[in-house]
Design a binder for these strands. Structure first.
Lengths: 151, 151
DNA sequence: ACTTAATCCTACCTTGGTGGTAGGATTTAC
DNA sequence: GTAAATCCTACCACCAAGGTAGGATTAAGT
């Protein structure tokens, strides 16, 4: 599994904020209840999003979180990258400039690099706004049954 | 990490067999030595490939393994699928006809489904033969620096 | 000033999969 | 009969995933 619950829940939180914030701060308790997720666990996840500059927060009573930018300015790739650390499908992909010692002679490396590129390209093209709007054309592409008639 | 060493080593074994077999049987000891991998660990991996019908084996002295088909008739997708069990990037993708209970209302599911499709499409298009031939155009696509001049 | 409701912070814990290892049983060529 | 190979079952250490617990801090409202 490339994306753990951490990344999935992070995305869920971002989508929830985009949907229910309308400029004001939304408490984590509200998010957890709406999405039916453990608030305590979400705490650690939203903390990553907050420190990563994805959110603005307000402490104290009536505090909470809200998006730092417009939904269309968040790519799914950056959200998942922040929370998961890496989205590389294998650990032999170059990380922080460090690559596998066998890289020069490895015949399967181009495959993994290509797969990594395909994933990054896809996730970079979809925005938070696409998810909220239910933009099936962009998300499902050729695989969407209704994209010809809808959209 | 979507693909563990199990899948990666399985692919390495398949590539090795395609390269060094020339119709005869290749012993696991030879493969392990060439690829510099633990023979004992490879044993459990090649067993999956063998039982999955990917290989032919011969027991006893001078025995070993060889490919059951031509390299161009193996997609990378089927090799990884057999060894990894699933290549789904998240566990909320439908598995064996069973899908998440929240599927009908989940707004992020189309994203995960789309990602899954993109991965499967890519891995299904590349064959064992492409890897051996070093077909960078197919593997790296737009990301290959030399694909315009070469190929 | 006090209470309440919220974020923030640190520590801990359980479980299952990953990545192997060990030892032997069985089969076949020479 | 022996050597060299596959086959089979069991075991194990480690670590990330997926949380839980408890409290410290901050700010709004009365």
């Amino acid at each position: 599994m490339m994306v753990s619950t951490k990344g999935r829940y992070a995305l869920t939180v971002m989508v929830d904020l985009a949907r229910y914030s309308d400029g004001g701060f939304v408490s984590l308790a509200d998010i957890a209840e709406r999405e039916n997720l453990s608030m305590k666990y979400l705490e650690s996840i939203i903390s990553i999003l907050n420190k990563g500059g994805m959110l603005e927060s307000l402490r104290g009573k009536n505090g909470g979180y809200r998006l730092a930018r417009a939904p269309e300015d968040y790519s799914i790739n950056e959200i998942l990258l922040l929370t998961e650390g890496t989205l590389a499908p294998v650990n032999c992909i170059m990380q922080d400039g460090v690559q596998c010692e066998k890289a020069a002679t490895c015949s399967t490396l181009p495959l993994w690099a290509g797969l990594d590129s395909v994933i990054e390209k896809y996730l970079s093209a979809v925005t938070l706004d696409d998810i909220i709007k239910g933009n099936r054309k962009k998300m499902l592409g050729d695989y969407c049954d209704h994209c010809e008639t809808e959209q």
